[in-house]
Design a protein around this nucleic acid. Structure first.
Length: 490
RNA sequence: CGGGGUGUAGCGUAGCCCGGUAUCGCGUCUGCUUUGGGAGCAGAAGGUCGUAGGUUCGAAUCCUGCCACCCCGACCA
């Protein structure tokens, strides 16, 4: 393994890329913009999935699966949605290849599709086309479905996990009989995302509403959670959309109400993706490697044995195995790294690189004393602890680490929200400090665009807990009723 | 997609300007010694020089196309 050290402070994106590769999470595939998610990275995704899935089910949702391919005509039905994604859609035009006279594989022009198929960039179209057949009466509502899937958006510039052409995600698509119920669902799922981000990813997020410019194509309102990465850039970590009756109207999905009236169905959609793995990396990791929150770490505890002779090795391994069993009884995932081919120092560095929250080192000295050496990844603190009661001790330590990294991220985030009142200040803070900028905005798309043009900062959101406050737009000086959060974003 | 850069063994690189069959480090393999923070010594294996063409007696080196990646823009979860 190449332990190439690039510091966060020197080149943040190189640091990020090296980390993803060195920690063995993913690599670029030989397909433009696509990545191979390697077992260690995928294990993190599986843990995320398991937890989110549990939360979705707890809020009454069920899973289903819809096709990858969407007929172009379906896709066109909701104009705004189609327009919003048009520039990044992969299109299937043929269904067969053949071997030509040069023994090369070529597209068989005789196998051209009557109607092109779009590889889903998102599934509203195919799902609402399907829901049309499922909904006749208010008794058929609500429909609360989630799907775990891959989608494809032909991005110009990709980055491992943060933006790849193909990515994995979940998308919830719900149908409701009233606007209020759909809005409540939208907000509920936003809360689920926020809770997941903060409790499991240990990344503090700001809940907010997107401006019209930043809204999902086809939505009436887009809610989001925004996180802050260590380089001061914001990352949209999840969105929940109130779709109004836009898709119901586009796909002619009506239901008969209790009163016997025909009405269009109200809709929501919400999603989070493998981008969250990127968030996890960028929010917590350091120059030594990954720092994973215990609740999502594929390996929570690693045990590294230390020995000289075979005799010592046997004793140490026996003790290590026992500790492993004890920890596993508490449902912790434990790796006993008994490879004889690497020295302890190497293993220490490797598991630090991979972000394992707690490391146990156990050697002859410990066997004599009935102790082990514990090292926590987040603070790099080491301590000697008695083997007696170590299982509970570690369980508590993991909880402590979970909250410590959250608190650290929160402190950083809170310190990175800057309130500014003038355009000069806005520019200066953005350039020198980064982070979120809380500033007055006149509410127009033009001003938002202009600011983006001038500074590359966008309005990340209008926070849900915003306080009404009279002020003047930081750019135009026009009257404003509230502050919004600006930032440079991924 | 626009501007700039890079591509040589699993990884990182020298060589390129000025054409003559590829350097070094890490890693890998074998053996011995080691093992509480990335081990030492000895030996060995490993290369279509991103790719497709072109120029040339001869191309990693010169020319052209393409691809990928990085940095800066535009686009975006």
């Amino acid at each position: 393994m190449a332990f190439e050290k690039v510091k966060r402070s020197e080149n943040y994106s190189e640091w990020y890329n090296n980390l993803v590769k060195n920690a063995d999470m993913a690599e670029h595939a030989d397909v433009k913009g696509c990545m191979v998610i390697k077992p260690y990275g995928y294990a993190i995704w599986e843990k995320m999935q398991a937890q989110l899935d549990k939360m979705f089910k707890k809020t009454g949702h069920v899973n289903a699966y819809f096709p990858l391919l969407i007929p172009k005509s379906f896709f066109e039905k909701e104009e705004k949605n189609a327009e919003g994604f048009a520039k990044e859609c992969a299109v299937v035009t043929h269904y067969r290849l053949k071997v030509d006279e040069n023994r090369k594989i070529v597209v068989d022009e005789d196998a051209k599709l009557e109607e092109e198929l779009i590889i889903r960039p998102t599934s509203e179209a195919i799902i609402w086309n399907t829901y049309k057949g499922w909904i006749q009466s208010y008794r058929d509502l609500p429909i609360l479905i989630n799907q775990w899937a891959n989608v494809m958006r032909w991005e110009m510039r990709t980055r491992l996990f943060l933006r790849t052409s193909e990515f994995l995600w979940q998308e919830g698509h719900t149908a409701h009989s009233t606007s209020d119920e759909a809005i409540a669902e939208t907000k509920q799922m936003l809360d689920v995302y926020a809770e997941f981000a903060e409790k499991f990813l240990a990344v503090p997020v700001i809940r907010g509403v997107k401006t019209e410019n930043e809204r999902f194509a086809g939505a009436v309102e887009t809610y989001c959670i925004e996180g802050l990465m260590q380089d001061g850039k914001a990352l949209q970590m999840g969105t929940s959309h109130f779709l109004g009756q836009n898709f119901a109207k586009a796909f002619d999905v009506k239901f008969q109400s209790k009163e016997g009236k025909l009405e269009h169905v109200w809709a929501t959609s919400w999603g989070v993706s493998t981008r969250l793995i990127g968030a996890l990396i960028m929010a917590h990791s350091d120059d030594e490697g990954l720092v994973l929150p215990p609740s999502l770490a594929p390996i929570q505890v690693v045990i590294v044995p230390i020995y000289r002779s075979d005799e010592e090795r046997q004793k140490v391994e026996a003790a290590a195995e026992q500790i492993k069993l004890k920890l596993e009884d508490l449902d912790l995932s434990v790796k006993f790294d008994n490879r004889d081919t690497y020295k302890p120092g190497y293993k220490f560095a490797e598991w630090e690189l991979k972000g394992v929250p707690v490391r146990i080192a156990i050697g002859p000295r410990d066997i004599e004393n009935g102790t082990v050496e514990l090292a926590r990844r987040d603070t790099k603190e080491k301590s000697v602890t008695s083997i007696d009661g170590i299982d509970l001790h570690i369980k508590n330590l993991l909880n402590e680490i979970q909250s410590a990294i959250y608190e650290r991220a929160k402190l950083f985030r809170d310190q990175s929200i800057h309130t500014v009142n003038s355009w000069d200040e806005f520019k200066e803070v953005l350039e020198t400090k980064g982070g979120f900028i809380s500033a007055h905005w006149d509410g127009t798309g033009e001003t938002e665009e202009k600011i983006k043009e001038l500074t590359k900062a966008t309005i990340r959101c209008i926070p849900l807990d915003n306080i009404e406050e009279e002020g003047k737009c930081v750019l135009t000086g026009n009257p404003s009723k509230q502050r919004v959060l600006f930032a440079k974003a991924y």
